[in-house]
Design a protein around this nucleic acid. Structure first.
Lengths: 204, 204
DNA sequence: AGATCTATTGCACAGTTGTCCAACAGTCTC
DNA sequence: GAGACTGTTGGACAACTGTGCAATAGATCT
């Protein structure tokens, strides 16, 4: 096993423990046990536990973003692309799931190592959504005066849904919340500064 | 100092430490240092650390809810009451602030002691908002087909805004987000199952 | 084969944590 | 004032943590 492979294996094991126990409760010994190796090995590849956690979180973040972008390539229609984005964002059945996100967000407030990734990621997602909106406006398929502001609103909205889904999944039906989020985004695109307008194009 | 007062003092000190260091990093010794007493004293009043944390969180939750309800008594106008609710929900400059909420939510996923309060609280807030909506509909001031569903949406939305405000306050301007939330709620009240309608009454 | 280097182990160390407990210091009752 | 009770202290204890390090195993090179 090459050093690069070993490093990746450690990150993989760390992710497994992270999901199972939460970021704060992820210890070097647990990760070592997950791999069936010694805990000292981890510190041979990572200078500190913070560095390992940051790299694992960064890996999840990058992978998630990359897969979203990849899925978006499936379509050229601006409105359909936005729908794909919404469907992808709702990924509670994934390996790591929403719990890890909420966890990372909370943890990032205290760990500088995580904060950097959390911040970069947030900007990246916003930029992605804003681009989707601008493409839609450019193609004439939708109306949106302030794509940047609306993108922040959509991101915040989805975060709130995700948070509720993690904490109280049984109270708020996931399918309902997701379809509502999609419907809301379509409505929001037609809103201009709080003034309701009927859209010219028919909605499906 | 009576036993009840001492218990309250311990909860107060615990809250101070919670806000400063986060729930997960709140230790018995820190709480004792905050009060200038011994750490053994804490276990004389609370059977375990989990019990203390749960009681402190429960105190914040109850107090927050009670103060919101109290503030709502200031008005009889249904629409104004909803506006008061929105203004109150946005309380980042409070003593404990939004960080504690996010923290508690994340922590509740792992600590059964916190989970109960988190769940009860979520239901209470939903019930409060749903009642506000129903009162508005009843008075004829607004339109809302499914107050229960919309109440969940509003709660989720505000949680998302709060989450963003805590994690990336500098990226999303708080005033913008807050005014947008209020404006959105007004719009949402006029939405029926995804179909946009112009409201008959003029908006302020 | 011998030397050299790296991956890996097992353990030691110091620092924290929750929990518990014997001792002390008050206050109240008789 | 003697005794009983309760609040409070200070520290002990075991379990845990991240980190560092000497010793070993294994591969690679000369």
């Amino acid at each position: 096993m090459t050093p690069a492979e070993r490093r990746a294996a450690i990150v993989d094991a760390t992710l497994a423990v992270m999901v199972r126990q939460g970021i704060a409760a992820t210890t070097a010994r647990d990760v070592a046990a997950e791999m069936g190796t010694s805990s000292g090995l981890i510190h041979h590849y990572f200078a500190s536990m913070d560095e390992l956690l940051a790299e694992a979180f960064d890996w999840v973040a990058s992978d998630d973003l990359a897969r979203t972008v990849g899925a978006l390539d499936a379509s050229d229609d601006p409105v359909e692309r936005l729908a794909i984005f919404f469907a992808f964002y709702n990924r509670a059945d994934e390996d790591w799931g929403m719990q890890l996100w909420l966890d990372a967000w909370s943890e990032a407030a205290r760990r500088p190592a995580l904060q950097q990734t959390s911040r970069r990621l947030n900007v990246a997602w916003h930029s992605l959504v804003a681009d989707l909106l601008r493409a839609g406006v450019g193609s004439g398929a939708m109306t949106c005066d302030e794509p940047d502001a609306v993108a922040w609103q959509i991101i915040s909205l989805l975060d709130g849904l995700a948070l509720q889904a993690v904490a109280h999944a049984d109270l708020v039906a996931r399918d309902d919340a997701n379809s509502w989020a999609r419907g809301y985004a379509e409505d929001q695109l037609a809103l201009e500064r709080g003034v309701l307008r009927s859209r010219a194009t028919d909605r499906r």
